[in-house]
Design a protein around this nucleic acid. Sequence first.
DNA 1: ACTCTTGTTAAAAC
DNA 2: GGTTTTAACAAGAG
Length: 288
Amino acid sequence: MPELPEVETVRLQLLRHVVGKTIKKVTICHQKTVGHDTSFSQRLTGKTIKTIDRIGKLMIVSFRGEKNLYLLCHLKMTGQFFFINANGTFAGGGHTYNASLVSTLPSKHTRVIYFFTDGSKLFFNDMRLFGYTKIADAYTVSLAKSAFGPEPIAEDFDFVKFAALIRNRKRSIKAVLLDQSVVAGLGNIYVDEALWQAQVAPYKIAATLTAKEAKKIAVSAREVLQQALTFGGTTFRNFTDTQGEYGNFRDYLAVFGRQGEECRRCQATICKTKIAGRGTHYCNQCQT
DNA sequence: ACTCTTGTTAAAAC
DNA sequence: GGTTTTAACAAGAG
């Protein structure tokens, strides 16, 4: 379940691995992943990767000398990138890596393979086929970007604006925080975590919250995202980095997946319900 | 066999 | 017309 910290972890690794590399060939194993684009491979062949940006959970690849060619990459729920060196191993990077995974690639969940001219490869795996890597022009990219609200980790995040925005929202605060057009980057895990830290109950209608509570929620969201970033994200089910490694923030989750366990703040039992159509974890005693 | 899992979106409802 | 809700997508785990 990649959210902002997981996507950023992958982006930073991809920056190290593929920036400046030239695409030699692309093999498409599943057409849906590239938006059924029949010219996908042809349009990317010979292109050199300039950089990779990110907004919310969306990665945007740009190419040298190309002002109107981009690759939009979304992991959705089960998308994974695996980078393999020219010598056939994972890139390494100081920490141990999942070596046994290398021999399984490509696997039955491999959807696209990018071959670079230096012999290295990038695999895009996606078990459930919700993710994509699609070619887009500059206009499409700007449209996609405009659909996102500010990120809580942005230095210039405007807390006053955020409080004003949610003041007339009649949905639960959980639903509002999951809405990428309000704030970008949060998903089911970090919304639950941020609300626990802010001591606000997820079912509360956003409009009923005070400006003070709104600010506390945004500050908590920022802190939770930043902390998760330092741990390389959270692996709850399917997330791995580009070497098949898990994110280590799971050990620090306060509520997500901890239903039936003790609240670390007040020792009450963490409960789980469904809010905004999603599994929702919170402490019914200290989140009010 | 059936329920549950989630990020996003299209469509329907309000 | 903006906001909100719901279902759909897909495939695996339990």
